[in-house]
């Protein structure tokens, strides 16, 4: 049993923004609501559903792009009255206008998917936004358990169904993992009726991107797995046990400066920083 979500009554009204993009069905390539983004909307709607009508919590579902895009209707059909759209050329860079909008709107929680289903699909948007806003980012969130006294308790999805519980001070950005709860059904009536709340914004064309050509991603060939396990118990262990990272060290008692130095050294060593 998962614990029920709660936003504590003592907390001030919580403002949530779910960022949505236009998804692409993996089999047909047809436009749809993106899987992870719709989970982000679902989580936002669930957090709002506190059963306490005196609270003024709000959810804004935000898209940067073309407001006439039919893919957005899929989100609206989840029961949204409106979708806020920052109108810009879908090929333009969305990060700058999104960042400005969020800075002004000052939400407490921003929910996004891990990566888009089309376009660059680099998964960088949440990170770039976090950098711009100076907020922490929690990647691959499966659930938000509670928001209390300005601190959110978050469950992060780890491989093999494991979860890590984190406490994060508001405001923050969370990218929603595919392990989060399925999005509710999208219904045709509300989808057609929802308002597109349009705001025209300045955007700069993504010069680099213009020179790219897009092609469907190909699955990388998989390395053949040699099964070494001799018994069922070993196979079971191989399939379920948490893979233990090789090397590395746990630094718990050292000073923050020492810990930072160790991370810095590692990044240099791995060639992330030069």
């Amino acid at each position: 049993m998962q614990p029920k979500q709660s936003i504590a009554a003592t907390d001030k009204d919580v403002k949530i923004v779910s960022l949505i993009s236009v998804g692409k069905h993996p089999q047909s390539g047809r436009v749809r609501r993106a899987d992870q983004d719709s989970r982000a909307v679902e989580l936002g709607m669930k957090l709002l559903d506190t059963g306490d009508s005196t609270r003024g919590d709000s959810l804004v579902v935000l898209h940067a792009g073309d407001p006439k895009e039919p893919g957005l209707r899929g989100y609206a059909g989840m029961g949204l009255n409106s979708v806020r759209v920052l109108e810009l050329d879908p090929a333009a860079d969305a990060v700058a206008p999104l960042g400005e909008y969020l800075q002004q709107f000052a939400p407490d929680i921003v929910l996004t998917g891990v990566r888009a289903e089309g376009g660059e699909s680099s998964g960088m948007v949440p990170y770039q936004l976090a950098e711009k806003l100076g907020w922490p980012i929690v990647p691959r969130v499966a659930d938000i358990i509670s928001v209390e006294a300005g601190v959110a308790e978050v469950l992060q999805a780890l491989p093999r169904g494991q979860r890590r519980s984190l406490k994060i001070r508001l405001p923050f950005i969370a990218s929603i993992d595919s392990a989060a709860q399925d999005a509710r059904q999208s219904a045709y009536g509300p989808a057609s009726r929802a308002m597109m709340d349009i705001e025209v914004v300045d955007s700069s064309t993504d010069q680099l991107r213009e020179s790219w050509s897009e092609a469907p991603a190909k699955k990388r060939p998989k390395r053949l797995k040699v099964i070494k396990a001799k018994t069922a118990a070993e196979r079971f262990k191989a399939a379920t046990a948490k893979s233990q990272g090789e090397g590395g060290k746990v630094m718990q008692n050292e000073s923050a400066a020492e810990q930072a130095q160790a991370i810095f050294d590692l990044l240099l060593e791995e060639g992330v920083l030069r």
Binding site: H25, S28, R32, M78, G79, Q185, A187, P190
Partner: peptide, 23 residues
């Protein structure tokens, strides 16, 4: 229930999504 409430039970929503996306 389906077109206004989005409450097709069990596999209903998934099947409808599939039909919409892949015919």
């Amino acid at each position: 229930l389906t077109m206004e409430k989005g409450q097709t039970p069990n596999k209903g929503a998934e099947v409808l999504d599939n039909i919409i996306a892949t015919d």
